[in-house]
Design a protein around this nucleic acid. Structure first.
Lengths: 125, 125
DNA sequence: CTTCTGCTTAGACGAACTTCTAATCAGCGG
DNA sequence: CCGCTGATTAGAAGTTCGTCTAAGCAGAAG
């Protein structure tokens, strides 16, 4: 990836602390979180995420994924790029094939934000 | 709301069961879930959700919300409509003002889907 | 080196989204 | 009834998004 055009999201930023006990989200936090949710807010990307997560070994080759959709390879590649730039997945080339795997920490963070549980999420309790 | 134009999401559908132990999401499930995530995948709507959830009494008047943004009232109204049609919030008019409150069940469902925990989410464990 | 396969990048196009202004509806008070 | 305030609807403008085709890069094999 020689040319970096899409914004790079710092996945680790703010990932440590349980977000917003119940001070409402400020604009900066919302601006940081929204792109993460946007990345999973697509049927194809949701399924890709699921396919990768559920694949044996916890990782999947692109060739394992394209067959599940009636979409062209470039389109799948595009969606994988979106997920990767959001920090939700990571990838590595091994010889001929490129493998993708989930970054559970980011998913966990998003999950915790939506959890209606004391001190841990968007909703009081 | 005399004219119903935007699609109505059946919030209760599939809300009972822990989603997809680890059979990957099928297309129909993904098509149903993606609009919910899309509804929260916006900085303004994330903050609206948070503001409503954290407001005393668990509900907020529109007039409590508009002040937090540098956006016009119709824009806020639009975002509230999106959240409402996704089933994330509900509302009621009481005299002059309209009050909004969170539907925690839907948020909980989304949270559970992202949870990397056995048998409950997108990610194995 | 050449060719083949796997995957990504580049660019284009139509659909969807966010925001605005202007207009409308709903309730309250003179 | 009339005007005022709170909130929504309608329609338009600009931007972003999802998908495609065509082209390019990376590794393996002849």
């Amino acid at each position: 990836m020689s040319k970096q055009e899409l914004p790079v999201v710092d996945v680790t930023a703010g990932a440590c602390c349980a977000p917003l006990a119940c001070e409402p989200l400020n604009a900066a936090e919302a601006d940081e979180l929204a792109p993460l949710f946007k990345a999973i807010a697509d049927p194809v990307r949701l399924r890709l995420l699921s396919l990768i997560a559920c694949h044996e070994g916890g990782e999947a080759c692109v060739c394992d994924l394209t067959g599940a959709f009636e979409l062209t390879a470039p389109t799948i590649s595009h969606h994988l790029k979106v997920l990767k730039q959001a920090g939700l997945i990571d990838s590595e080339r091994r010889g001929t094939w490129v493998y993708y795997w989930i970054n559970p920490a980011v998913l966990q963070r998003l999950s915790a934000i939506l959890e209606p549980q004391q001190g841990a999420g968007l909703v009081p309790a």
